[in-house]
Design a protein around this nucleic acid. Structure first.
Length: 314
RNA sequence: CGCGGAGUAGAGCAGCCUGGUAGCUCGUCGGGCUCAUAACCCGGAGGUCAUGUGGUUCAAAUCCCAUCUCCGCAA
């Protein structure tokens, strides 16, 4: 089966591995986002998918848009039986959706219809979900609205963060896609319509999503911190106005009123314990502006904070 | 050449502006106190202050120059 793959970030590599693990699949080309200046010094950086494909001598296309005739012609030349999309970052126009014999399928990292959209993993953790998963869907014109073909669930533990959820979902996404491909060939899929009444939208993570809101309860603050760790990281401000990112935390008490203003440091015994709207949370590791990640205890030793200081004001 | 911060003992930092004996909080080692301790007390070891055995100076962690490395912002 001739497959065109579309994807961009590291997560898409799980799908590429799944496809290439089946000998009767041929990846005739990949589409990925254009190289962008990234990192310090604005070095032009290829996407993980491009690197992967280049190493295997698979043709790489990086069209700025699919909405013109240039790609339509390319598509005819490639003549795929199926298009697999994982975190590509572009909308597929109708003629693309319609071209392959088996259509276009998408690996989405949530249990659809929950968390449709750009940041399903982060939004699931942020929402305090205890279960999530991957859904392989038959793409249609809407955003993540297609019929669901195969799903896999995973639990989200109380201390899972974006990294662990990402990795766990990657593994099951590989299985889910393998199963989907097999059943496409067998013709044994039974697509399931999404229940629109349960649909939610997982908006892209903005910088404002990363500013810690200590007026929330401790569990919510913890969810925010782990949903954004290790990238891009939740942050607050120290009393001297410096940025302080928080990779890791632990709720100390989930309930209980505090006599002080949310954001106030209540203890520095080995960690930075901060009062929340309800309960308290300990910041276990921190990332000061201009420095690397360090244990909170080390940060405290540098005498940067005192009990009674207030975080988040700036 | 996108903007900025930083390299000082095993860790985190101060000292630099206003050159003149290497300092703080920990850790570590030894001793003491204690029923006991991660608590407390006493003592010790551990640093070519990133590199150039660069420049200025009677004198450089400190001022100047170059290089290397790490990091934050932004995308």
């Amino acid at each position: 089966m001739k497959i065109v793959f579309m994807g961009t970030p590291e997560f898409a590599l799980y799908s590429l591995e799944a496809i290439s693990s089946q000998p009767d699949n041929e990846i005739v080309a990949v589409l990925t986002q254009a190289d962008k200046p990234r990192g310090r010094g604005y070095a032009l950086t290829p996407t993980p998918v491009k690197v992967w494909a280049t190493e295997r001598n698979i043709p790489v296309y990086q069209p700025a848009t699919l909405r013109d005739g240039a790609f339509e012609e390319t598509l005819r030349e490639l003549d795929p039986d199926l298009i697999v999309v994982t975190a590509y970052g572009k909308i597929l126009p109708q003629y693309v959706l319609d071209y392959p014999r088996y259509g276009c399928i998408n690996v989405h990292t949530s249990l659809l219809p929950r968390h449709r959209g750009a940041a399903p993993m982060q939004r699931a953790i942020l929402a305090g979900d205890t279960v999530t998963g991957v859904s392989v869907q038959q793409m249609d014109a809407g955003i993540d609205t297609g019929d669901v073909l195969v799903t896999r669930e995973i639990p989200i533990g109380p201390d899972d963060n974006l990294e662990t959820v990402h990795d766990n979902l990657g593994l099951v996404s590989r299985e889910a896609l393998c199963e989907t491909l097999t059943r496409i060939k067998e013709g044994t899929l039974s697509p399931v319509k999404q229940d629109e009444t349960h649909a939610t939208h997982a908006a892209k993570i903005e910088k404002s999503d990363c500013l810690i809101d200590f007026t929330a309860d401790a569990q919510t603050v913890h969810n925010q911190i782990r949903a954004l760790s290790p990238m891009p990281l939740a942050f607050t401000y120290t009393p001297d106005g410096k940025l302080l990112k928080i990779p890791q935390s632990r709720p100390e008490s989930r309930d209980g009123e505090n006599s002080c203003v949310p954001g106030t440091v209540v203890s520095l015994d080995g960690a930075i314990t901060v009062a929340c709207g309800r309960g308290t949370i300990s910041l276990l590791t921190v990332l000061p502006e201009g420095k690397g990640r360090m244990a909170a205890a080390d940060y405290i030793r540098g005498r940067k904070l005192a009990v009674g200081d207030r975080l988040g004001k700036n």
